[in-house]
Write a protein that binds this DNA or RNA. Structure first.
Lengths: 308, 308
DNA sequence: AAGAGTTCTGAATCGCTGT
DNA sequence: GACAGCGATTCAGAACTCT
């Protein structure tokens, strides 16, 4: 489970009271599980470096200070339950479906228990003026939304992420599944002064009248999509940066602290870095963390160039 | 609670074994609670008249034969906690007491109990090749969707329906909420041969398969919207006929039996009547049933004219 | 070099019938 | 219930090949 780079600060045992020197990368630090007891995740209201954390989100979240995070973007497992093993297109080519181990749950009950736990931890660390976004599909979003309500969040909107170029339906037995749903919620019904930059979002659309609850965006592809030398996607569900740009523009400000508990390919941090937000990303898989480090490094380099 | 027209068959006490003669209207019958024990809701597979039923849906549904309904369209209370406006009959008399019955729930738990009960009854009476549609907003749809899954339905799609144009007066604290969500589900995961007119939908969509992300339909307004003499809406959530036309076109065939447990203004039955589907509608409020009777009569008259 | 034509792929709960 | 055979089924965008 340890990052193969083997350069984590946690490789040296942490000493109580004397936090290990963080491993500085391109403007962020790497934390491993051994660092948590050293108070590395306290004092987040004063600007620390950006942080990429190795570990399971449930464990890591428990170490983060209460009320310390301004915005949470969560792209949890969708609990897709693919019943057909081989889905083929009409031309008989095979569809590369999402069958990753991290998306496997034995039942709705197990998925609910997992969801409730991370939602509760996120609610604890969320600032009273902050908000949370969760993205999902019909497979999981109803369970997520119900648990958001039951754990005390207050839903502000549901937003439709309409995919301009979704995969078609190949059997003619359903409608083309062409969208995902984002739920935007605040910490409690009584929470006030939630960060929301309506004007900025309006400008993003070129001043045109926008259906603000319907975001028509392309899926993540082209040069943005991370692929290996053979052209295979490196992550099943990489989100487009344009989606995170809207989220961060709408519901965070410069210098705000943005958390992504299921970082994946790190789109949240990449966009946060570019937009001048501080970020914390949690990712369990070493392979995905390596992708994140590469993306962040490229953004930091480009940023340096742009500032010249 | 009794319809002020006072013409229900149930006004005479039912005699066991000798069903009261149904009150024939324009091609349908009115049933009151006293009729249920007479077996009036059995034998639905052989074409009976269309039926408008007085009563609470939970009570009425329990009398309907299992596996007897081909399609269910449900527009349940949204749990909006709205201030209910005065309800008036076509003759402009005020209907009182609606705010106690309509959309008031004291908690999510109470709403869930209600939802689970009618979903279970609907599932029992649904044909194995049939399907159910439920429409809602972010206030209730996550609870409905989760309970659909937990009661054994299998979700086929979620559909985004453009409810209305964005609100002109925007306070700038949330995104404009301009859509509702429909969930389309079948009776069980293993259900086969679900009625779905893929070709017709594809044709309707300009030759490309119908997508789930945005059904941009005409607003329910103008001549279609039911209003009193002062121009006030007679029902706060009247659904456009175009929406039901698409639903019935997609997931039912001629002669199929369509059920709406929360009939409201009766859009489901009006469209079903026009499209040659048989229908059962349940409505608790006498004032709404009067609206339904007026609409159905107009459709039947138009149909008679067209047939000449 | 520009444009036309071809190939590939994407969060997917994606059949029916007879033996 | 498992399995084989048959048959019906796709859209947009990017990358690539060919002329």
């Amino acid at each position: 489970m340890r990052n193969s780079a083997g350069t984590h600060a946690g490789d040296e045992p942490a000493t109580v009271g004397t936090p290990p020197a963080p491993v500085e990368r391109h403007g962020y630090v790497l934390l491993s599980p051994d660092d948590f007891n050293a108070g590395a995740l306290l004092g987040l209201r004063t600007p620390p470096p950006n942080i990429l954390i190795e570990g399971d989100c449930l464990e890591v979240l428990s170490f983060i200070e209460s009320n310390s995070v301004d915005l949470i973007f969560a792209d949890p497992p969708y609990n897709l339950q693919l019943k057909t093993k081989d889905l083929r297109r009409p031309n008989n080519t095979l569809v590369d479906g999402v069958d990753d181990q991290w998306d496997q749950f034995t039942s709705f009950e197990e998925y609910d228990r997992f969801t409730e736990r991370w939602l509760k931890e996120c609610r604890r660390i969320l600032s009273p003026t902050g908000s949370i976004w969760v993205i999902g599909s019909y497979h999981n979003i109803f369970r997520v939304g119900r648990l958001l309500q039951d754990t005390g969040y207050w839903i502000l909107n549901d937003i439709v992420y309409a995919k301009k170029n979704p995969m078609p339906h190949f059997r003619g037995v359903r409608f083309t599944n062409a969208h995902e749903t984002l739920i935007w919620a605040k910490k409690s019904e009584g929470a006030r002064k939630i960060t929301f930059n309506y004007r900025a979002l309006k400008e993003l659309n070129g001043g045109k009248q926008m259906r603000s609850d319907w975001w028509d965006l392309p899926i993540c592809g082209g040069a943005e999509r991370l692929r290996d030398a053979n052209g295979n996607k490196l992550h099943s569900t990489q989100k487009p940066e344009a989606l995170l740009e809207r989220v961060l523009l709408a519901t965070s400000g410069p210098g705000d602290l943005v958390l992504d508990p299921f970082a994946g390919t790190g789109t949240t941090g990449v966009v946060a870095q570019r937009m001048g937000r501080r970020w914390i990303m949690i990712e369990r898989e070493a392979a995905y963390r390596e992708l994140i480090e590469g993306r962040i490094a490229r953004v930091a380099d480009n940023g340096a160039c742009e500032r010249q």
